[in-house]
Design a protein around this nucleic acid. Structure first.
Lengths: 337, 337
DNA sequence: ACTTGGCACTCGGGAACACAGAGTGCCAGA
DNA sequence: TCTGGCACTCTGTGTTCCCGAGTGCCAAGT
């Protein structure tokens, strides 16, 4: 049904269209790629490909353009992820190595991805829920007011100001801190609620109201921040790629954290890369845009995801290579720090 | 030289052009605003205004359009800042009040400004250098590795992982922490370097190498973060305002932190509002865009700045009102938390 | 000294039109 | 099954033309 040559033709069409941004015709095809046949033959193949929905023509008597289905086939079976050049790898390493805290790691990753792929980069902060407690700190700020600081093993720091129901002496705060750290150290965040359940009972009765208040804020922090944080950048690249339509929609989607998270979401197939092409993605404003995403994490578990977003007409092999490489390096950095 | 009627004409031109986005001619002017004179008279006035560079015509036989100089005059002398409606004020208050930490305050402020003005909003994080130390925390992470956490009175939290030259027992860390907090509590960040200079001497000799390492990282933190942090949003509004040219440039400028800071920078005249119109601003890519900015702070001192960025063709009175109001409310929130 | 109506002039933008060029589908022959 | 040829169909571009909004200027009016 789709013999080898037809597949080759499809591949050629995708490659040409991606690089020229113009519908590609039969003649141009045989000129550029040396398929050993004549334009007429190609036309027949094209007719077949169109029949089956892999390509389409914007109007009669124009060249062909890949459909989403065509890109899908290309990505799945006709292309290979293109590894980065040595220079690029080194650039990534040195650029990321300079980061000094989590915020900066994320920011730099965004820039890196945007620059490497010339698209919009999106990076999710390492998930709170899957990481574990490294330290809890309680800092007295004023009477009846403390700041609660939670440090995770991924370097993420959460802070909350807590208003207390009553005064509490500094040494009692210290005690509470010690108890908390003793039972929470290394504890997976998802297991924190059970773990702290009996903490009040282990304290002198007069400390319990304060402890309960602080604990409730702590739990709140975990729940609230379940909605993850996201950073993005490289929007200038959107303007460059003369986005046929909906630049507005894309920008809107980018500012809608919830949408973004869903787009990155759902881990996918081979080598951890997810590619969602045009109408495959669940947000109507993003018809015409594809997302290439990958999970990253320190060690074995996936902590969060990152990826890029660009026109369906993008260079998938290169983009996928860049995303995969960056995801790996970020994972290493996180594991090392 | 510029009698009252000419000024009225200029005002009318600005207002009409802002609302219609089309060059405004003499006839349209007399129709809409009831100046009590004929089109011919207006034409003479317009000629005078053009002569002096306040307006210009895109081409012969088109209406007039304000120049940057014209907008400047309009902002300085022909318009009044338009206060927000009661509903808007309440919306601001409730929206900002829900914020739970500094990050969220900033994020919400960005959204608020963007929504209120329908432009791109830019918010600078409260400056580190002008705030003061509320607490320093040293958290042991592993042997020879601690995390240094600095909490400022504006709620900003800075963290750094520090690799130590040698092992150090927890109680000695606690001692160092106590000493640091004792001398730094409430200390303005700019005075930290002098203040900590003699700390090593006050410690037992065996702790000094560690203390020196930690202090150097602390000082580094202060210096590095002198480059301030910035958040922005509402870029979708850019696409809506059919930006004549340079949407790309604008997006690039937005991602260039340094440029952004310079744009917000320099506090200005009346009521703390700075308006920079088109070519007045120091970045060539932003010809065609204006910036309305204001300082905000808890109490008397200006901690940082916020503002919006949009086409020179913007509704200045409304925008200025919104920026001023948001700046005030954010100040209140910061002071209160 | 301003203001006004009249008038000739200018120029951009849209509509109508023609045309070249790229591309297609199909068919008959190798 | 491939190929060359041929007729056909579009889009995009350039040309021309014309309308209308808007101007500048002048002479007359208040």
């Amino acid at each position: 049904m789709l013999d080898d040559r037809k597949l080759a033709v499809l591949r050629a069409i995708v490659e040409d269209y991606v690089s020229t941004n113009e519908p590609v015709g039969s003649k141009a095809l045989v000129d550029r790629h040396n398929l050993g046949v004549s334009p007429a033959t190609i036309r027949n193949d094209m007719a077949a490909l169109e029949e089956q929905g892999y390509i389409t023509q914007p109007h009669t008597s124009a060249g062909r353009v890949p459909t989403d289905k065509g890109y899908r086939l290309f990505v799945d079976r006709l292309s290979q992820i293109k590894p980065l050049s040595g220079a690029e790898r080194r650039a990534i390493e040195t650029f990321l190595a300079g980061a000094v805290d989590l915020d900066e790691i994320v920011m730099r990753t965004v820039r890196l991805l945007a620059q490497l792929t010339r698209q919009v980069a999106v990076v999710q902060y390492p998930s709170l829920t899957r990481s574990s407690v490294r330290h809890v700190e309680i800092v007295p700020l004023a009477e009846r007011r403390v700041m609660l600081v939670l440090i995770t093993n991924t370097g993420r720091v959460e802070q909350r100001v807590v208003d207390l129901p009553e005064d509490i002496a500094d040494d009692r705060v210290a005690n509470l801190r010690a108890v908390l750290n003793a039972c929470l150290d290394g504890c997976g965040l998802s297991r924190v609620p059970e773990t702290v359940a009996d903490v009040p009972e282990r304290l002198p009765p007069e400390d319990r109201p304060v402890a309960v208040t602080i604990l409730s804020v702590l739990l709140e922090t975990l729940v609230e921040r379940h909605e993850e944080k996201i950073a993005f950048g490289g929007t200038a690249n959107l303007a460059a790629a003369d986005f046929s339509i909906g630049l507005r929609d894309v920008l809107e989607a980018l500012e809608e954290q919830v949408v973004l998270i869903r787009l990155l979401g759902e881990t996918g197939g081979l080598s951890g890369l997810t590619v969602r092409i045009g109408s495959e993605n669940p947000y109507s404003g993003l018809r015409g845009t594809s997302i290439v995403a990958a999970g990253y994490g320190a060690g074995d578990r996936e902590l969060a995801r990152l990826g890029v977003l660009g026109p369906t007409r993008m260079d998938y092999p290169v983009t996928m290579g860049a995303v995969r490489a960056v995801a790996r390096y970020v994972g290493q950095i996180l594991a090392g720090s």
